[in-house]
Write a protein that binds this DNA or RNA. Structure first.
Lengths: 339, 339
DNA sequence: ACTGGCACTCACGCCCAACGAGTGCCAGCA
DNA sequence: TGCTGGCACTCGTTGGGCGTGAGTGCCAGT
């Protein structure tokens, strides 16, 4: 049986009221606060149907109704009206990002921004930029046989790995650096991997040991996707859960310390350019069964670099949260593309 | 009036019992669990004195006693016996740090380690290494007039700043790079600042604009102490507060997101090579009035680079917490010194 | 198809009494 | 002088009983 228009309106009313009041909502309050033009009794009949179909439930016999995950899902898919950003939110986005120094800084600012506009816990993944090309490779000696391999890509990202170098190998290092730069500058990581392994074959025998060490470090850096790094912020917003401490807040805190879990949460939103909502039990991680995740990939045009999102109670204001996550993701994508 | 030996033993017994049970402790339980060889009545008299002097208090008239901040302070200063690390703790310290890649990685591992062995929230400050010398400066062009200044010091730390560069300035950049490296490699940051400003004067006029930009970026990097960065971990341990959510946990979570507050907490421990304990109201930050901070500087020999510590409830197991913080700080100091 | 009426359910708040852990005080004893 | 046993007292905690009210389901009437 399909739900008629009034039942959908009632479901929407229940959800908006419950989200703002955090209390089960009854038939009487419903007709008073929304002009439904029917009596409480009629609403009760409709609510009985909605409950039968699994969209709402009552915590105990003589209480009002609260939405189920399925109810929220329907709301998000079909009932949510787009809530435009407030001027304050627009302003926050602009001012937060202005003057960011580098990629690190952009990510740090983004996570604070997301947490602030959504009032939830924010998660931001480092941008991957697989299309970035290698710009420069440097080999540097430090002290006591320690050295450093440095890799710079066209997106301005700098990575380094420590290596061991023999004493008095400066000349060898300079030679190796030149060879490597000639071989890989301008390539994507993917192509550079081939070029580097090929390079090893044409090295003079004396340069082999050092060459192996350096190339290994470079391959390691190229293989380790920076987007496996995730930053979290806005944890104090968890206090909005208020009640249910041990049952809800603790698992969430634990999830937030596990990079792997976070990556999985965001990962499933990674392919889509638009906002993904995962409600309650839809979450892959058991500890987040009573929370929702609103996430979005970000990037430039069709090139998605990574994801960002928020974690909050299932009873959240989906329309404005979705609007905010979408706005921040788009803005950060543009911002990074422009450099 | 000075406290006699038995009163001190009673205070110590109250604290250890309260820390493990989290409940007010009465005179009767006290004589049963510790062999005090006196009657409960005697203990009561002594407790009355201890309360009068402000070392303990009772939450309500007919309840047992709990320690005050002043009581904990006396305990930490004079009554705490050193509790040696358990074999498991020793092992944890060794295995956690083994195989760390670079400074970033060491800091990340340290914060997890501290959180795990103390079961509290851990805070670790990046090492400053003011004695490190400049090892290499690089100038790299990216795309669309964007470039990068890279600074490497002898401790293996790599920093970068984005700059704007005119098109087709590769030759100019190479020249500038050579001049800068000749001028500053081997110097501490402090000396390099003079050398760099001097360098500007001898540049050909055509190189001035670019030179200014690059030097400004370098000075900015040298001025920004990496030890202003702080990493936090073990936040789920906050659930040990259990009760008092809004009153205690929220302020702590807020403090943990404010780098400035964290730096201040650690900062006051920075000068001392040994563990510093700050109990309840002794904390500079109002939100942490019901928590204690156990911190220690770390470094090598007399050269202290930065601090680390933990935040937990005032009712914590001070002897073992102090022992653990000390052990981790020393180990990490040694570990970094050896490279 | 909707409405008003009505009996029913049940969480919540309140009061009150019993309980008991713990205290302070005091008189007695070494 | 210092310790002890005894005793009256305090007061938070627990649990049962009860009234209240929000909310429901059902049904007959329009």
């Amino acid at each position: 049986m399909v739900l008629d228009d009034r039942k959908l309106r009632i479901l929407r009313a229940i959800i908006t009221d419950y989200v703002s009041s955090q209390e089960p909502v009854g038939s009487r309050a419903l007709v008073e606060r929304h002009n439904l033009d029917v009596s409480p009794a009629t609403v009760r009949n409709d609510m009985a149907v909605l409950e039968e179909q699994g969209y709402i439930t009552q915590p105990h016999t003589s209480a009002g109704r609260i939405p189920t995950d399925k109810g929220y899902r329907l709301f998000v898919d079909r009932l949510g009206t787009v809530k435009p950003l407030t001027p304050a939110e627009r302003r926050a986005i602009q001012t937060f990002m202005a003057g960011a120094l580098d990629v690190d800084d952009v990510v740090r600012r983004t996570v604070r921004l997301l947490a602030q506009v959504t009032h939830q816990v924010a998660i931001v993944q480092y941008p991957a930029m697989a299309t970035a090309t290698i710009r420069h490779v440097d080999l540097i000696t430090l002290t006591h046989g320690r050295g450093l391999v440095i890799l710079v890509n066209s997106a301005g990202r700098v990575e380094q790995r420590p290596i061991e170098v023999p004493d008095q190998a400066d000349e060898q290092l300079a030679d190796l650096r030149n060879r490597i730069n000639l071989a890989v500058v301008g390539m994507t990581s993917k192509r550079a991997i081939d070029a580097l392994t090929g390079l090893l074959d044409v090295l003079p025998d004396s340069g082999r040991p050092l060459g192996n060490v350096v190339v290994a470090a470079l391959l390691d850096m190229m293989a380790s996707d920076p987007s496996t790094r995730v930053v979290v912020g806005g944890v104090p917003n968890l206090t909005r859960f208020g009640d249910q401490f041990e049952t809800t807040v603790r698992p969430v805190l634990e999830a937030l310390e596990e990079q792997v879990v976070l990556l999985r949460l965001l990962g499933e939103a990674g392919s889509s350019a638009d906002v993904t909502v995962r409600i309650g039990h839809e979450n892959p991680y058991a500890g987040l069964r009573s929370t929702s995740v609103v996430a979005s990939a970000y990037g430039h045009n069709d090139d998605m670099w990574a994801s960002m999102g928020i974690v909050g109670p299932t009873r959240m204001d989906y329309p404005s949260t979705i609007a905010n996550v979408r706005a921040v993701a788009r803005y950060v994508g543009r911002f990074l593309a422009e450099g």
